[in-house]
């Protein structure tokens, strides 16, 4: 008889169910985002299930195939995003998860470079610069996690220090969490850092040439991305489900509000802002955990 306390539920069944639900949750979140944005602008807005209508429609459209490499990169992009989400849910190594998530961006960049369209090229260049901006910050945050928990394994977050005294990451790394909030718009491709998919200037950036079901696959990958980013932030308070989900909701609301109140920035402005503010937050947080002696070698 399997009870709720059985480790098999939390180690295998729950992550598997969440991995299947991830695109549905991500799609609904994007739908809520569009609805909320519309309400903020005093419009009625599309229904919440609109992203699913869009994807289903794309699967019913003709595929205009530019070249075969482009299609392979779309599938690779989706698979790496799904893989990084899966690794996160099944409690794998944080460092591997971060690099796998970075790899998905690389596949998108390669997709943009593999077609002869200037919009794709410009989009890919900008996508690379965005990676250059957020990846060091994300890695440093992961290193800080390692310094506090003593391991890159996600399981260590539940049981660091002594088994009796488990402390949420939020209490030791509050500024690292703020640094994650700072790179949130880049990962979610939202304003003010939606430079790669600036649809008013360069069509849709790297995904300009996708049509039909391959654009649908890229959209599904984006659903997974939204889920991945929010779940990653949820790791900062794993002790209590209510606070954990509250933290994810806060990050989501933060991204929507920032998306609505800011305009798109230039690449150099983005690099300057994210590096200066992000590194400052991380250095202060590092000093804090070094001084209070909360680090494990």
């Amino acid at each position: 008889m399997i009870t709720l306390d059985d480790p098999i539920i939390w180690k295998i069944a729950f992550p598997a169910v969440m991995l299947i639900l991830a695109p549905i949750i991500g799609g609904l979140l994007i739908g809520i985002d569009r609805k909320l944005t519309a309400r903020l602008q005093n419009r009625a807005g599309p229904p919440i299930v609109q992203p699913f209508y869009d994807v289903l429609k794309l699967f019913g459209k003709e595929d205009k195939i530019v070249n075969k490499t482009y299609l392979v990169f779309a599938v690779a992009y989706l698979l790496t995003v799904v893989l990084s989400t899966g690794l996160l849910l099944f409690h794998y190594d944080l460092l591997v998860i971060t690099f796998m998530f970075g790899l998905s961006f690389i596949f998108l960049v390669l997709a943009g470079y593999s077609v002869r369209s200037q919009f794709s090229y410009v989009g890919s260049n900008r996508e690379l610069l965005q990676m250059l901006t957020y990846e060091p910050i994300l890695l440093l945050v992961v290193f800080l996690d390692r310094l506090v928990t003593g391991s890159f394994q996600i399981d260590a977050i539940w049981s660091f220090t002594e088994p009796a005294k488990t402390e949420p990451l939020l209490y030791t790394l509050p500024l690292a969490l703020l640094a994650l909030f700072l790179i949130l718009p880049i990962q979610l491709r939202k304003s003010p850092y939606d430079i790669a998919e600036a649809h008013q200037e360069i069509a849709q950036g790297p995904v300009t040439e996708y049509t039909g079901k391959f654009l649908g696959l890229v959209t599904i990958a984006h659903f997974y991305e939204v889920f991945f980013v929010l779940w990653f932030i949820g790791l900062y308070f794993v002790q209590n489900w209510a606070v954990r989900i509250g933290l994810m909701a806060l990050a989501f609301l933060f991204s929507i509000v920032i998306d609505n109140v800011t305009a798109r920035l230039r690449v150099d402005q983005m690099i300057r802002q994210v590096y200066i503010i992000g590194l400052l937050l991380i250095i202060v947080n590092l000093a804090y955990i070094l001084i209070t002696g909360k680090w494990i070698a």
Partner: peptide, 12 residues
Amino acid sequence: SRFGVMSTGNPK
């Protein structure tokens, strides 16, 4: 946009 209309600049 309440009918799902989205304006794209991309014929594809």
